[in-house]
């Protein structure tokens, strides 16, 4: 194999790599809106009737004081907020141990016509803070919402 041919292959490969990366970037950033992993409560509300019926993910923070467990012990209700809007949720799921007021959650389910979101898949979102117990936790709403809004759909 001579040098020229090898270096041509190198050039083509790097060109191919850059092309795929550029194509991927364009594809992802232009359809970014449709590719969102979860909708915020405000976005879901803005969609109105269009959002009802299909399986979507809703992401937000569990609103303080909104958690209540139904007497049958199987259904959990709470509200999810992004600081702008809030959506009432009915969850037929065993919540993960970390589920609590003020924590981020991602829910997979359906928006009902009555404006209530029903889910059977309740996921808790953890932020990138790792602290020892005892250090007083400040429920810093602004910071929590900020962590939630990382990735607005455009790189």
């Amino acid at each position: 194999m001579n040098r020229d041919r090898r270096r041509r292959i190198l050039g083509i490969t790097l060109g191919l790599g850059v092309a795929i990366a550029a194509f991927g970037y364009l594809a992802f950033s232009s359809v970014g809106e449709n590719l969102v992993y979860y909708w915020s409560p405000a976005e879901l509300r803005a969609e109105g009737a269009k959002a009802t019926g299909s399986i979507v993910r809703l992401g937000g923070l569990v609103e303080a004081g909104s958690i209540s467990r139904d007497p049958d012990g199987l259904t959990l209700s709470f509200s999810v907020t992004d600081g702008e809007a809030s959506v009432p949720v009915l969850a037929r799921a065993v919540p993960p141990a970390m589920f609590r007021e003020g924590i981020g959650v991602v829910l997979e389910g359906q928006m009902g016509s009555d404006g209530t979101f029903t889910t059977e898949r309740l996921m808790v979102k953890h932020d990138n803070e790792y602290q020892a117990p005892g250090e007083e936790e400040m429920p810093d709403m602004e910071n929590l919402i900020e962590t939630l809004q990382v990735g607005d759909g455009s790189p």
Partner: peptide, 8 residues
Amino acid sequence: MPDGVIGG
């Protein structure tokens, strides 16, 4: 109701 801390 979970207390927000994972045990076990």
